[in-house]
Design a protein around this nucleic acid. Sequence first.
RNA 1: GGCGGCAUAGCUCAGUUGGUUAGAGCAUCGGAAUCAUAAUCCGAGUGUCCGGGGUUCGAGUCCCUGUGCCGCUACCA
Length: 676
Amino acid sequence: MSKYIVTSALPYANGKLHIGHVAGAYLPADIFVRYLRLKEEDVIYICGTDEHGAPISIKAEKEGVSPQVIVDRYHKSIKESFDGLNINFDNFSGTSRKPHYDLSQQFFTELLENGYITSKITQQFYDEAESRFLPDRYVEGTCPHCGAAGARGDQCDACGKLIDSITLINPISKVSGSTPVIKDTKQWYLELPKFTDQLKEWLDSKSYWKENVRNFILSWLNEGLIERAITRDINWGVPVPLEEAEGKVLYVWFDAPIGYISSTIEWAQKQGKADLWKDYWLDKETKLIHFIGKDNIPFHTIMWPSFVMGQNENYVLPHDVPANEYLNLEGEKISTSRNWAIWVDEFIKYFDGEYLRYVLAVNAPEKQDNDFLWKDFQNKINTELNNVLGNLANRVFSFSKKHFQGLVEKPATLSDSSQAALKQANDLTQDIDNCYQSYQVRKAVKTIMDIARLGNRYFDEREPWKAIKEDKTSVQETIYTCCEILRIISVVMTPILPNFMSQLRGIMGLRKPASWSQLASDPYPIQLDNIKRIFQKVEDNQIEEQLKLLQENAQANKEAEKVNFKELKPEIEFDDFMKLDIRIAKILTAEKVKKTDKLLQITADIGGKKIELIAGLAKAYQPEDIINKKVVMLLNLKPRKIKGVLSQGMILAADDGQNLSVLLADKDVKTGAEIG
RNA sequence: GGCGGCAUAGCUCAGUUGGUUAGAGCAUCGGAAUCAUAAUCCGAGUGUCCGGGGUUCGAGUCCCUGUGCCGCUACCA
């Protein structure tokens, strides 16, 4: 019997958990783990929060607290959400804990000693106002190659050339707006290209991986791997374990996957068997399975295996990486920033967490992006769980109670129809077994519901309400057979609905925890007890309430954003302002620039003179919308060639991230009027 | 514009390596039944498998092309 380590992607500890996370990386893993347990396999389910990186430290700065406060808050929130859905890890750790620091540093040190990490002294911009180094993308300036303004530190968009950021002319920090100074800094790089052959060979053996995962990896390898910086000049993270690296930390995506191991070590320590983790991570036969969303594919199939290959310990490499696609919500992409999401902690205030398990399982985004619709949620809970499964249990149990005081005995012989029904149900358990084995959760659930439908059909055909008048033994047989069907369901549905199935088994007097081997066992006679409905319907008004909440949250979010005050740029002199030549210009012609999404080519009258320019307005304005408008235009900006056209002016426009709006004069003024 | 993905019933989705009359659930319509949460069961459909072309004895499936949508990316003086 092989061992399993199952992991789910470490959720990032700067926000709450929403249904998209659950559908992609957590529920499928939890179901798989529960399935393996039913099969009495040796499995540990490992996770924890990912607690480093700039977004967390920025959030902490904003709130004026330490990053650890943010991390602790969301670690708790996320853990509670998982608990509410009965997603139960063997260990749920976090990457800001000591054992994780130790192990991440060990990985780094060994990769360094083995020649996979090299350092380079680079000169980098340093923002003295903020006392921090600036990542390339946080600096803008004039391109040293083509002289265009506004080039980013990593690349000039005008000429397309890569830039060594310190060669930027007139650099500006995007963080503080001040002029950064150049400082030497050393960074360490992981030489991914050195792993190319080893990775290719290893990946060749993974022909059984999901197609979407393989395609993704192949395109990465074909493009060629490049070295990646794995250190950062920020103050929140795992310190780089070198004296000369004072104040530097490991880049978050380097230390995060190591969390799978460090969380397992923590688990072993909690058991009082500090070496127990080795039985899993160091056993070649262990199947390591990473459940992730599709965005995480490169990290888990290229980077993370490279880390493992390049260090000294014989940790197992991933056996499989079943990545799922995305879940959309009411036809739109789930978005944290727009607050277009169903948050798990909210959901469980209104509904049983296992209702969410059911709907996300039956509609899991296994092969393509899927949609979560509240109406559909209600429909599935009501027509499938309640009407088909819940009602089958209830009608059988009620009938038994009424006529046999709930005592169910195994008949000496079974008629053909009963035997056929049981055989069909048992045959389906084989299919279900295969589905679970191959991560096909949605098909597994559908097949289980087929067993329930089979039970209803059988019950109807036997017509026990008629038979009870003349042939009581036939009715006993009917009830027995239906109980068998329900007992089968109570086992095979356990990975999907652990708590509900436990309730069902409780009613049936099945005290032992479910296991697959029980399918062949004989617990009869059983005494039905405490008969009750286990599922409740979802009412129309509950769904309307949720739909309303969803809209309101998104709306409230929009308004909240407007209030957000962004720090002002540094003060300037009046003379600086006077350097700007801004005038009213009339748009004469406008047309879309071919091969672009956002650009309009425009000619404008600036008061007796015509100029040409390019404006990035096409997302918000059709050419005909803007022709003849009198807009505000900055005219003495150094002309720049864009898409072959020399752009001689800039139309002033406001952009709040949602809407883009050009500025117009309040009253009608003459074209060419100066602004000041 | 580049790269990638997707397009199947009114809705949400399955359709394995090409192989008979293309499926499921829900919704709709008709019927049966009355044990049960008005739940259940039986029956009936409905499809230019996005358009066009090609390969093949045979295409929802493979190739080319067009259209539409989604994601990443580029363009914003």
